[in-house]
Each structure stands twice: as C-alpha cells, then as structure tokens.
Design a protein around this nucleic acid. Sequence first.
DNA 1: AGACAATGTGTACGACGTCTACATTAGTGC
DNA 2: GCACTAATGTAGACGTCGTACACATTGTCT
Lengths: 218, 218
Amino acid sequence: MTTIGTPPGPNIGVRDTYRHGDLSRALVEAGVELARAGGPTAVALRAATRRAGVSPNAAYRHFADRGALLEAVCSAGQARVAEAIEAEQALIPDATDPVTAARLRFRAVGTGYLHFALAEPGLFQTAFTASPDLESATSGSRAGAVGRGPFELLTDALDRLVAVGVLPGGRRPGAEFLAWSAVHGLAMLLINGPLRALEAGQAEVLIRRVVDMVEQGL
Amino acid sequence: MTTIGTPPGPNIGVRDTYRHGDLSRALVEAGVELARAGGPTAVALRAATRRAGVSPNAAYRHFADRGALLEAVCSAGQARVAEAIEAEQALIPDATDPVTAARLRFRAVGTGYLHFALAEPGLFQTAFTASPDLESATSGSRAGAVGRGPFELLTDALDRLVAVGVLPGGRRPGAEFLAWSAVHGLAMLLINGPLRALEAGQAEVLIRRVVDMVEQGL
DNA sequence: AGACAATGTGTACGACGTCTACATTAGTGC
DNA sequence: GCACTAATGTAGACGTCGTACACATTGTCT
C-alpha cells in the first residue's frame, strides 16, 4: 500500500503516478523557496521532499546528500542574481555614448547585485555562502538570460571599461575581486550583519557611495 | 543517582560537585571551540554542554536558547578580532610621524581584520554572521584589550585620519561603512566564497590592494 | 515476456533544540 | 544551627533533521 500525492500540507508537485517525472527540478525549486524564506540553513532535504510530495529518501536518487541539493539551490540563486543585474543593465538607454554606457553598465552590476540582496536576502545568502569554488562559479548553470553568471557579468563590465579607456589596462588584473569585495561586503553587512536594521533610504545612499568608492579606487 | 563528571569524551569542565561553578563561561568557551572548528552551525547546545561535562538542559539556566549562546560566542569572537587588530597596530613604531602613523593605524584595522579571518575562519564567520545589531556591536563585551570592539577601532582610526588632515572632514561621515564593506567582503569571499581555494600569497596581495582601494577611494 | 536499471517507499538510528517535571544545593532570615 | 527559597543541574520525552539499509514499483531493452 503506497500513499501517493496526498500527504498533509501544500503539495507543490502532487502526482498520481509512482514516478514523479521531474523530481530533480522540483526539489531545487522547493529548495529555492525554502532558501527565500529562511536562508541556507532552511534548505532541508526533508522539507524539500515534503513540498514535492515525495518520501524523504527519494531525494537521494538525485542528490548525493543535503550539500548537493544546497549547491544546486545556490546555483539557481546565482542565476537569479545574474538576471537582476541584467535587468538593471537593461535600463540603460541605447543612445548613451559608449564611455558613460560602459560606466553605467559597470555600476549596474553593483547596484543590481545589492538590490537583489536587499529584495531576496535569504536566497542571496544561500547563493554566495557555502558556494562552490570559483571554477564552477563560471559554469553555465549559474547563468542568467544571456548565459553568464554574476561574476562573468562583472568581468565583462570591467573589460568594457578598459576598452573604452576609462580604466587603465594596468589596473585591470584582479580588479574584479576588488569590486566584488566591496559590493559583497556591503551586502553582507546589510543582510545579516550589523547594518541589518538600516532603513531602505539610508541603504540606498550607502549603495551609491560604495559603488562610487569602487569606481574611484580601482 | 546522579552521574557527575564522567560521561564519555574529552570533558573540559570536569567537576566533582553538583554545581559547576562557572557554567556560563564554560559554555561560551566550548562554543568558541566549536565555532573555530566548524563555524556558526557547529555551535550546538548539546555539544557545548557535553564539553562542559553537564546535561544538555543545564544550558537553559544561562541562555534562553541556542541563539543566545550563539550571540555570546559571537561577542567573544568579535573581541578576539579586536585583539588581532590591536596586535597589528602595536607593530607600528612609536617614532613614526603622526601622518603616516595615522595611515598605518588605519590600514592595520583592515589587515588585522583580514588576517584574523584567514587564521580563524570558523570563529570569524561566527563573529559576524547572525551577529546582533550595530547598537550592541559597540557594547563592551566585544572589546579587545583596550576595551573597544572592531567597529570602534575602525572609527577611531578614521577620526585620526581626519585629525591629521589625510582625510577631508567632508568625506568622514559614513566612511566606516565603506571601509568595512570592502574589507568584510574580501574576508567573506576568501573564507567561504568563491575565492576560498586561493593560496596564501595571492590572498595577501589581494588584501593589500583592497586596503589600497579603500584608502584611495574613500 | 523477462531481465535490469532507475526511481520511490518504509523503517531505523543518532544528533539536534526544547518542553516539563524533578533533584540537589547555596544563601537567607530566624 | 536550621528550615525556606531561589538557583542550578538532571531525566525523560517529543518533533525535527540527515542518512543508511532493505524493499517495492516502473520504464526500457533485448
């Protein structure tokens, strides 16, 4: 006797067949919801399988352990960050002259990153804490619509700054890490650090100033 | 019948009396060790009480819940960060002229912070993730030898930069958050972010460059 | 049709946080 | 000196989690 599809609670992946069909994806989606609500620690195997309407151990057919699911959720989160950055970049008018376009494009990486962090703190935190190495950070699964991850969008913007002549080529190597550090640090301080209780307006001022500092200090 | 002092495992706080004497401190110390070994999530009530040679529920006489213990461990961690910064500042020769002394003192805040992060990643992470608000970040319990926390050491160094004439007074307000963001972000990227696998030498180069960026971009 | 691999279920174990009830002890007022 | 009370520690239980093992069901390939 197998009870299928009607355990209590809001079943997202209700089914009437023994097989689920797309459990892998369903688990990641459930994990993303859990991360949105409660950050990395809330991404639990059992909770995800519950949402998918499946027994806890079913997860092990698709993920080696909880860490593997967390990694998949992390990749999904990074993809959404990339989308947020691209959305911010899309606001730049096409008619902008190349130099200021490059500058605005670069700034949009930082502001998009930070706005996403403020809008989706749990998912953001999940996306960048306990994330895999840098190597895998440039892989396809963390990409946005254009197929690039947040890190690649940053390096692209920096390369364009050099091409346009705003950033001297000598300062280019390693610049991605400087920029990333400043923006990522503010995100952390704003989300679960000591700046947590800051009001939205003041946060916006800080965001602008940090991006200013990066642009000037690179 | 009460078994006292001889549960299995490495008992740190072995005792022969029913009362422990200083359980509160013993639990925080155990928590610090757990944090050093495994980061914030490793700070468990049961593990801490085990190390103190005490039953799990004894912790509830001193901490409201696990979060309260974590907070105490976090404060202890911040105190150690402050000590690391002070140690780095103490390396500045007394005979240095006031202007460069102020500059070096400021840079020492960043480098001390980052060196501690690299030396004690678990404790560092515990100290600054899920930490209480900024208000309490300036309280006494997170202080180092001089009685100031990491944040106060930073603001002190910035004030001195202004006093000496290196930093224009108009740029002073909010500068602590800019500097903190950059340094904290690099720490996070180096510890559990995508820069985790970086070798020590390259990390040191990045540290220098980030502090350069802050000094120039402020 | 029958074998095999893929996928999902059931049961079980230890660790965790935390609740409730109980035991032991240190001070305090007499 | 002694009983009372508050502080402190213990015992047991419950629900959660991750995960290991054995078993059930199904799609697929020959």
